[in-house]
Write a protein that binds this DNA or RNA. Sequence first.
DNA 1: CTGAAAGCGCTAACAA
DNA 2: TTGTTAGCGCTTTCAG
Lengths: 346, 346
Amino acid sequence: MTITIYDVAREAKVSMATVSRVVNNNPNVKEATRNRVKDVIKRLKYTPNAVARGLASKKTTTIGIVLPDISDLASSESVSGIESVANMYKYNIILANSCHDSEIEKEIFNSFMSKQVDGIIYLGHSMSESSKRYVEGMNIPVVLAGNLDMDNKLYSINIDYEKASYDVTKEFLEKKRKKISLVISSFESQKAQRIISGYKKALDEFKVDFDSKLIIDGYKTYKESSQVLKKIQQVKAEVVLTMFDEVALSIIHQTQDLGIEVPKELEIISFENTKLLAMTRPKISSIFHPIFDIGAVSMRILTKVIDIEKAKNKGEEYNEEELTELDNNGRELYLPHRIVHRQTTK
Amino acid sequence: MTITIYDVAREAKVSMATVSRVVNNNPNVKEATRNRVKDVIKRLKYTPNAVARGLASKKTTTIGIVLPDISDLASSESVSGIESVANMYKYNIILANSCHDSEIEKEIFNSFMSKQVDGIIYLGHSMSESSKRYVEGMNIPVVLAGNLDMDNKLYSINIDYEKASYDVTKEFLEKKRKKISLVISSFESQKAQRIISGYKKALDEFKVDFDSKLIIDGYKTYKESSQVLKKIQQVKAEVVLTMFDEVALSIIHQTQDLGIEVPKELEIISFENTKLLAMTRPKISSIFHPIFDIGAVSMRILTKVIDIEKAKNKGEEYNEEELTELDNNGRELYLPHRIVHRQTTK
DNA sequence: CTGAAAGCGCTAACAA
DNA sequence: TTGTTAGCGCTTTCAG
């Protein structure tokens, strides 16, 4: 019924070991033999069974992606980046939504382990402590994409949120804006923390007192944000820096409803940079950074980590140099960002 | 190092067969034994190896999703739906972007076959002829989500595009609009064909001549659409029906730039119904239909088809009745739609 | 350069 | 109700 390596071996009059070598591009096969085998493979339309291969070799060429919600625009752009390099390296991707639930997250990790994925990319918010311990116990390479590990034990790919936040805050301070509001989603998330930290740094530098009322927490989606502008007005902000594009968009719509002029009366700039930004009127200014690339680079790094771990386990020598592009104990990689003024900033 | 079924068997003083039975909830195990085994499993933190299981049982509890582009809003919403029911049924999801390329598509199918997925969900445009033959040769259950099979051999989940198009066209004709334009993406795609067909049907009914100039082809994304309004103006359309939300949004922005009043001078209604529609000003009218559910239902149907095929292969009797919700030779399922007027139609 | 053979961890008859 | 055993299809030493 199904063609196996054994059928190919028989037809090509070689052992299955040789067929295996041909399939895996092992150089120790005579050219003539190789061609003979290849012909048979083509004739029989043989496709190696990846499951059997995974069982025998303990490598599945599959990586797992955990993320809160695939239908989130930023997430799916990152996944697209992951997919594109996964494809180059012949890896498959298995995807699971954690729905922001750390119990589900744990189940996902379990399922990934049972499926014997070669590595995991964790997208989205910061991982819960329990999930982290769980993952560390699994001995599977993990890369965080677009989120940080406080303890700096896991690899992570991001932009330098602190620097970005510092840069943008500084720029507004230089333009004599004093009331700069930050609309973020989760106070405890590492990402938000770094953004606040960069913001404070700039404030310090300009000897402006930090006012915690300017930090508006708890807004992430368009829907949730229908009342943010009120809060912004309450604190009399001149500039608002949003962590998420949908929030920025919502604020803009609210200004339109209330007849507030943007950017004249209120300037808005977003941190997230999804393709949504290009689809609004006015066009929203942003901290430009490549969400797609964060995914792509994460996947590239992951393949390296997988290779290194494999070498380690075999006791082979391996090239730590491979990962020299990573900073901060060799765990973090920052992609470049820049401030892009569109129509919501002066 | 890794805990196997054998370790559990030894510790629990049973055979691995019994452990296997416990793990698979086979009822033929004495309660006492079952508990003993379960205790050992917990104590040893045993997790079954899904790869080995897949090899032995030829069931991987993994399904593959092929789609043109995961970062497309509609796609990711459908994937979200698939994921949510896949999760309920304990299936994992492998994802791959076809990038609209039928060569890549073929590679993906190959890779899915090699990974021994239990089924495939095909998202997006209609499958190329060659891909279809390929898939049919693979003997893996396939469900189309949000796209159609001309030959009606593959299962597919959609809304009734023809009816929806008919409904909306009719409604405008009743309101005495004559010039109704259709902005679609691909002339040959089944979906576009059905939309056109419903449109024509309504026209016929109202004895309005079909004018092919009113069908504007080749627009799908926001970016691509920056010149559509010109075309719409050239044909002097009063109403424009778009296949994709991004196009509708682009048209609206263009009307704003040109000072054309919507819906007074031009009415716009979109077919796609992504969450983008809720994030615009004015809010775009649409053929409301549940993209998420199309994914969810596809997955549900797929599990049934998988079960039926399995039963067939075993020569067991099976319940075709399971699929009675499907129409049209038992292959198609239509989800309900309705017309929702927001702010871009009168 | 090639082959033989021992698994990888599990399921599924078949026996008992 | 439980155990024995033969694979699933492939990789990977180890010999030769």
